[in-house]
Simulated scan of single mutants.
Amino acid sequence: MTDDAYLFLALSTDGWQGTPLALVGELECLDTPAVRAWFTAQNVSPASAVVRVVPPEQTGLIPKDAERLPVPLSEEELERVRRATVTDGVADIEEELLAFRDSEDNRDGLLRRALAAGVPAHRIVELSGVDPSTLSSASRG
């Protein structure tokens, strides 16, 4: 795993091919000379349907032969990329986890629902602010 997100070119429309950059919106890195040069070298624009972006924890899923470029993102940009990569159900649960930081109402139920929806444990801890051991005990309950 790397600390950088990646831009890459989708090789096909079959299977998982990252999140289209257009879904994420403007990223500061798009204005840097290195990223502009990469787009020029690939003969594509940031709006192209083949340009995809993935957060650091998903870079291992980029097709081996895909043209790629690591890009640094701010925390806010990284959160937008992560939110764009999830399904609606997971996005809804992640919203609840973010709201949970200010409340303890039905903590264990929410944590179990997040796990059942497929939200990775590290994401639940990050979004909700719970201790990892709390997550473990809630998942057993």
Rank of each mutant, 00 (worst) to 15 (best):
R123G: 00
T87I: 00
G25K: 08
D4E: 13
S136H: 10
V54C: 11
E28V: 02
A47N: 06
L73A: 08
E94A: 12
L73C: 13
S12H: 12
S139K: 13
V35F: 07
T40Q: 13
L27I: 10
R52K: 15
S128K: 04
L135Y: 00
D14N: 08
W38A: 14
G60E: 01
W16P: 09
D102I: 00
R113S: 14
L115W: 12
A10D: 09
S74T: 15
V130Q: 01
W38K: 09
S139P: 00
R82H: 05
L9T: 07
V125R: 10
E67P: 03
L111H: 02
R101M: 05
A84R: 10
D108T: 06
R83S: 03
L7C: 09
V130I: 15
L61I: 00
A49G: 14
P132I: 08
V119A: 12
G118N: 08
A22P: 00
L115N: 05
T32R: 14
L127K: 02
E95Y: 01
V35T: 15
R113Y: 01
I124M: 04
R107K: 15
S137F: 04
G129Y: 02
L23I: 00
D105R: 15
L110R: 15
E67W: 02
L9C: 05
E77R: 11
R36Q: 15
T13R: 15
T19F: 11
I93C: 03
T59S: 15
G18P: 09
E104A: 12
R82M: 13
G89W: 01
L9S: 05
K64Q: 13
V53P: 08
P70C: 06
E75R: 15
E77Y: 08
F39S: 04
C29Q: 11
L27G: 10
Y6H: 15
P20A: 13
T32N: 03
S136Q: 14
D88N: 05
L97E: 05
A49N: 12
L7R: 09
G18R: 02
F100G: 03
V125L: 08
I93Q: 12
S137T: 14
V51H: 11
L21Q: 10
A47L: 05
E26W: 04
R101I: 03
